[in-house]
Amino acid sequence: MPDGPRLRHNPLIDQRELERLHEQCFSWALTCAGGRRAEAEDILQMSYLAILEGEARFGGRSSLRTWLFAVIQNHARSRWRRARNSLRALAQLAVFAPAAETAAADDPVPGREQARVLAALRALPRRQGQLLDLVFYRDLSIAEAAGVLGISLGTARMHYERAKAAMRERLPDLGPRV
């Protein structure tokens, strides 16, 4: 770990280490924000603020990377809940009929195949998609991914298997060869 300046309210965190992990954090924030860039930036900035002010404290019990992912995930979830409650309140007032997904993703993925895979990933329930992202893309174990998402290992295993089955259904050409 680089020996850089430590954060006043989070003395176990080295700011240079945070900078080193920044791109991975943004990528995870993008996943949590459903591919919407502005939302991902907002989530990541709120997470950084919580870390800087000590609202989220790193105790060194896990790796810094998984802890950061968990902080980002918590902010994304609370943001999503706030948005959902606002939409419900508006719906009750019969002002606005909320859609399932409020905005489209920003990512102009160049390849058609990749766009298809991403679309299939987004069509999964949020938690399942996040689990696959953490395990397949970020090489976390299922236990670590469960820690990031704040769920039990058993629940994580169940979601993991369901997510893989759903992806095979949506992308049959990636499924098992008979």
């Binding site: 160049p110 990749q114 991403l118 397949f136 893309y137």
Partner: peptide
């Protein structure tokens, strides 16, 4: 295969954004 496809798609997304 699933892992390769997913990782490739997410890498492409991260390169684009």
């Amino acid at each position: 295969r699933l892992k390769t496809a997913l990782a490739g798609a997410l890498q492409a997304r991260d390169r684009a954004l």
